[in-house]
Amino acid sequence: MSESMQIHEEFEIKWGMVIDVDKCTGCGACQIACQAENNIPPSTQSFDRLQSLHWLFVYKLDNGLPYPDSDIAYLPRPCMQCGNPSCVTVCPVVATTKEEEGAIVSQIYPRCIGCRYCMAACPYHSRVFNWFDPQWPKGMEKTLTPYASVRPRGVVEKCTFCHHRFQLAKRRARAEGRNPHHLREGEYVTACAEACPTGAIVFGDLKNSHHRVHQLAQSEYAFRLLERLGTDPQVYYLSRRSWVRRQGDNHVQKDQQRGE
C-alpha cells in the first residue's frame, strides 16, 4: 500500500463498539433510534440500499447451507470509524476528518461538495448521499432533534457515533469537575447501543481498560469487517459461530482465522 493511503494516527481515546452478533435478534430498534436521534428523514418506500438514507443497517447473513443445516445471523453495521479511514484521505475539501478527540470520523455537512469520492472509497457502504431534499410529513418536523443539523440534498452523510452525546457527556463531566477525557463506562453511549434490548451493542473507549469494550474486543471470538484491507475499524463483532466470523472478511483459501 502506498504512503498516501496511510494517515494512521493514534488517539488517546478511541471510541468503539463491540457488537455481539449472537445476541442480535434483528429487531431493528437500533436503526429506528438512530434515525430519530440524527434527524434522518423517513421514507414512504421500504429500505433501498441504493437510495435510502441510513446510517445503521442490519444485514441478514446466512451460512449458505440448505435447511436444516442452515443458520442465520443479523449484523448491524454502523460506520466503522476506521483507524485508517479510506474515506478521509480522499475528500478533496476536508469535509470528513478523523477527529482528534475520540478518534471518530466526522462529516462536515456545510463543507461537503457532494463529489461522493468518499462513498466510492468506503467498502462498508457506511456513507450515503442525500439524493433528494429531506422531507418529513407535515408536523413531524416538530420531532427534529437539536443533535444533528438537517442535511440538504447534495451532501454525503454517515454515522457519527452520536458525537453530540460525546460532547454532552464531556460537558457534564466538566460541570461535575471530572476529567472529560476519562468518561466512565456508560456516560457516553450511542443511540443504537442505548436502544438495543439484548445489549448486543456495547459501546466504550477501546483504550480504557475499565470499559467493557476493551476486554470484549480482545475476545477470541472477536472479528472486524474486512480487516485485510487495512482500514483498522473501531467496530468489533463477536460471534461464537465460525461461519459468521468467516463472513467478516474475504478468504481466498480455507485460511486460518482467529478463533477458528
Binding site: A29, Q31, I32, A36, P137, K138, A195, P197
Partner: peptide
C-alpha cells in the same frame, strides 16, 4: 433500558399523518 422499534418511533407517530 431496552426499547423496541415501534416504541422507538412512537414520538414520530404522535405526528403521524
Amino acid at each position: 433500558g431496552g426499547i423496541d422499534p415501534l416504541a422507538a418511533s412512537s414520538v414520530q407517530l404522535l405526528h403521524s399523518p
